[in-house]
Nucleic acid binder design. Sequence first.
DNA 1: TATGAATGAGGATTCATTCAT
DNA 2: TATGAATGAATCCTCATTCAT
Lengths: 214, 214, 214, 214
Amino acid sequence: MYQDDNTYPHMDAENIQVTAAGNAGSEDRRQEIVLAAFGLIASKGVEGLRTRDVAAGAGMNIGTLYYYFSTKEKLIQGVVDYIVQHIAVVQDAGSEAAEKTPVEVLHQHLAHLTRMLIDTPEIFRVMGELILRSERDQAIYQILKQADDDWQQYLINVLVEGINQRLFRADLDPALTAHAMMSFFKGAMLQLCLQTEELERTVAQFEGWLLDRR
Amino acid sequence: MYQDDNTYPHMDAENIQVTAAGNAGSEDRRQEIVLAAFGLIASKGVEGLRTRDVAAGAGMNIGTLYYYFSTKEKLIQGVVDYIVQHIAVVQDAGSEAAEKTPVEVLHQHLAHLTRMLIDTPEIFRVMGELILRSERDQAIYQILKQADDDWQQYLINVLVEGINQRLFRADLDPALTAHAMMSFFKGAMLQLCLQTEELERTVAQFEGWLLDRR
Amino acid sequence: MYQDDNTYPHMDAENIQVTAAGNAGSEDRRQEIVLAAFGLIASKGVEGLRTRDVAAGAGMNIGTLYYYFSTKEKLIQGVVDYIVQHIAVVQDAGSEAAEKTPVEVLHQHLAHLTRMLIDTPEIFRVMGELILRSERDQAIYQILKQADDDWQQYLINVLVEGINQRLFRADLDPALTAHAMMSFFKGAMLQLCLQTEELERTVAQFEGWLLDRR
Amino acid sequence: MYQDDNTYPHMDAENIQVTAAGNAGSEDRRQEIVLAAFGLIASKGVEGLRTRDVAAGAGMNIGTLYYYFSTKEKLIQGVVDYIVQHIAVVQDAGSEAAEKTPVEVLHQHLAHLTRMLIDTPEIFRVMGELILRSERDQAIYQILKQADDDWQQYLINVLVEGINQRLFRADLDPALTAHAMMSFFKGAMLQLCLQTEELERTVAQFEGWLLDRR
DNA sequence: TATGAATGAGGATTCATTCAT
DNA sequence: TATGAATGAATCCTCATTCAT
C-alpha cells in the first residue's frame, strides 16, 4: 500500500499521538525524503532534481523512495507542503503575543521575513522555483494559493487594526499595501545580490511610509 | 564557422551596411530561434525546454538550430539577451523626452512596466525563470546583473533629479527606493494571480508615498 | 549503486562464497556484456562499436547496460581487462609444469601464441585496436602496460634461465630478445594475410636463432 | 566535376609538367587536405577523424573539402596513398646505391626504418590505424597489400643476394626472414613505450643473427 | 572553385518508474 | 518495507553530406 496522495495531511497537534503509534517512523521517513529533496532543489533547482539523488540523500534505495512517494510530482508537492508549513509558523508566532501594537506586530513580522531572507535564502529560492512551477502544476498552485491568501489576510488584519488605532496612515489601502509588501518580499528573493543592510533599511523606509505622521 | 559567442566579428562599425546585407538573414534566423525558445520557456519553463521543439517552432531542422547555437546553454543565453534588450528599451524611450519632470518620467516608467506585466506577463515569467537559473549559470548571471545595474542606475538618476527639484520627498533614499521598486516588480511577476486594477492602484499608492507633500 | 569501477567491495576474501551467490549473476551479466562488446569490436572495430548493439548482443536493454557500465569508456576498459586476463592465462599455465626445460617452456609459450593467432585472430585484432586506442586513453594504457610488463618479465625469466643452463646462446641479450619476440607477435597480428604454416615456420626459425649451437 | 575516384594517381616524374599546367594548384589543395587529415589521424585516430576538422586544418570550407574528396572514405584512402608513397621512398633510395653489399643495404634499410620509428612515430601509428581499418575496407586493403608485397619482395631480394654472396647464413629462409622483419617493425609501432636505444640494439642483435658466422 | 547554411539519421547517456525478491 | 536490477522513451548533440549561390 502506497503512502502518498496526501493521505497524511497536516496532522493537528491533538491527534499526533494517535497516528504516531503506527506511523511515526513512516512519517519520519517521508520527512527525510522531503528534506533531501528540498536541499537538492535549493542547490540545483527543480530542474536539476533527480529522484535517485533524493534517495541517495535520504540514505535509501530508489525503490524505497517510490514506496513513499509514488511519483516525482508527489514528492515535489511534499516539498511544497513542507515549505508552506515552515513559513506559516510566522503567523502562529505572531498570534501568541496579542498585547503588542499592530505596528510592533508588523515590524516583527517583516523583521522575521528579512532575517529568513538573509539567513536561509534557500527557502525563498526554493519557494521561487515552486511558484514558477505552480503555473504548470495545479496541485502546487492550490497549496501555494492557500498559503498566499492566508498571508495576505494576516497582513490585512494587522494593517486594518493599525489604521483603526490611528497608528498607520488613514489613507492606507490595507489590501494594496499587503499586496505591495508581499510582492516586495517575493521580489527580494529574486534580487541578484542581496545585501543584508540594504534590505533591512529598505524595509525600514517602507515601514516609515506606512506610519501616520501628523 | 559556427555562430554562437554572440559576436559578429565581420561587422565592424564602418561596414555594417555592407555586411549587414549578407548577415541579415543569418541574424534573422537567430531571432526566429530565440523567439521560438522564448515562447516555449514561457509555456513550459526552462525545465520543459527541448531543443527539438525549438527547432520545430522555428521551422527548421534540429541540426540547423545547432548550427546557430552550439549548445542549449548558449540558446538560453540568447533568450536572456533578447529579454534584456527588450526590457531595456524602456530607458531609451524615457531618455527621448527630456522635457518631462522626474515625476512624470518615473510615472511613465512604472506605467510601462505595469502595462507589460499585464499585457505580456510571459516576458516576466520567463525573466523569473532565468533569474532563478542565473544562480547556477554564470553566463546568465553576468547578463542579468548588468541589466539590473543599469536599471537601478536609471531609477536612482530619476529619483535624485526629482529630489533635487523638490518633487520627491527630501528624506527619500534614492538607492533604497530604487531597490524597493525593483523588488516590487520582480515580486509582482511571482504573484499567483495578478489583477490589473489591483496592480495599477498599488503602483499608484507607491508613487504617492514618494511625493513631497507639504 | 552503480557497478563500474571494477571494484567489488562486498567481496572480501573471507566471504567470497557467501556473497558470490548474490553477485554471481551480476558478474555474469557483466561478462555477457563484455563478450558482446568484444565480438562487436572484433568485427567492426572500436570505431564501429555502438552501445545499443552491445546491449542487443547481450540480450538486454540499453538502460541495463548502462547500469553495469556507466560509460562506453568503462565498457571498453572492461573488454581490455577481459582480454588481458584471457591472454595472461598463458603464463599461469606455463608455471604449472616446472620440470620442463626453458627451451621447452619458451617453445610451448610461443606455440600457444601462434595457435591463438591462427585459431582466434579476433583476440589479437581487438588487442591491436585497443593498443592503438591506449595512446589516447590513459585507463587502457595502464592496464595494457601492466600486462606488457608482466609478459616481458616472464620472457626474460625464461631466457635467463635458459642461458644459465647453456641451452640458449650465451651472447643473447634477454631483454632485447624478449622485446624482439613481443614486437614480432604484435606485428604478426597486423600482418595483412596471415598464413598458418608461414607463421609457424617463422617462429621455428626464430627459436633456432636462440639456441646455443656449438 | 569531382576530383576523387583516384583519378589522380601516382604521377610519374616525366608527365608532371603536363598535368601541372592545369591541375598543379588542384593537386596542391588535395595534398593540404591529406596532410591535415594525416595529422588528425595521428593525434586522434581514424576514429576521431572529422571532416570538419580536416577542412579547418587545411584552411578551407567543409564544402570545398567535399569538392576534392567526395567522401570521407575517399579522403582516408588519400591518406593511405600518401603514407604508402612516403614509406616506399625507402626502396627507391636503396636502389640508387647499387655498389653496396646486401648486408649494407639491409642495414641501411633497417636503420632507416628505425630512425623513422623514432623520429616520426606518427607515420607508423597512422599506418597501424589504417592496417586495422583495412580489415573492413577493401579499398584500403588493396593499397596496403600492394605496398606490403613490394616491401616483402624487396627484402627477399636483398636476402637472397646476401645468401648467394655467402654474407648471410646459408640456412636462412629469405621469405620467412623477410616476414619476421616485417612483423617485427609492425609490432614495434605497437610497443607501448618505445626506447630509442633499446630498439636500435634489438635491430642490431637481429641483424647479427642473420650473418654467416663461420 | 569556394562558401556556409541546411539536413536528418544516428549515437551516447539519462531518468522516472516498475518489479521480482 | 527495502533492495537493486531492469526498462525504454526521451534528450542533447554530432557529423557526413548536400545544395543554392
